[in-house]
């Protein structure tokens, strides 16, 4: 018999069906169907994953972006004349 603790230790496997072997999976299913608490943990963890999935990171503040691009441009410009191989001749 699985305890709740055992079940929670396997929660990631339970949430990712491809990673569990069928007999272990059956035991996990059995536990979650009989244990209301673990059922809620599974349900709320799934919802947690759903709200976070693909969440785009906040925009980097303009001031920070400008500082980054300025520093990079300096570095790029410094590299040009000495050249590591070919550079653009368009400008």
């Amino acid at each position: 018999m699985l305890t709740c603790k055992d079940f929670l230790r396997e929660l990631n496997e339970f949430l990712d069906p491809s990673s569990t072997d069928p007999s272990a999976r059956q035991e996990l299913e059995k536990h979650v169907n009989e244990c209301p608490n673990c059922w809620v943990v599974v349900d709320t963890t799934k919802k947690t994953l759903k709200v976070f999935k693909g969440m785009q990171a906040s925009e980097v503040p303009t001031r920070v972006k400008d500082r980054l691009m300025a520093a990079l441009e300096r570095k790029m410009a410094a590299r040009k004349p000495g050249g590591c191989g070919e550079t653009h001749a368009s400008e």
């Binding site: 980097v60 920070v64 070919e86």
Partner: peptide, 21 residues
């Protein structure tokens, strides 16, 4: 890698948010 700085700048623009986070 071939020296196209515009391409590198595009990579920066694409990944800066995630690296900052």
């Amino acid at each position: 890698k071939a020296g196209d700085d515009t391409a590198f700048a595009d990579l920066v623009k694409h990944y800066e948010r995630r690296i900052f986070r």
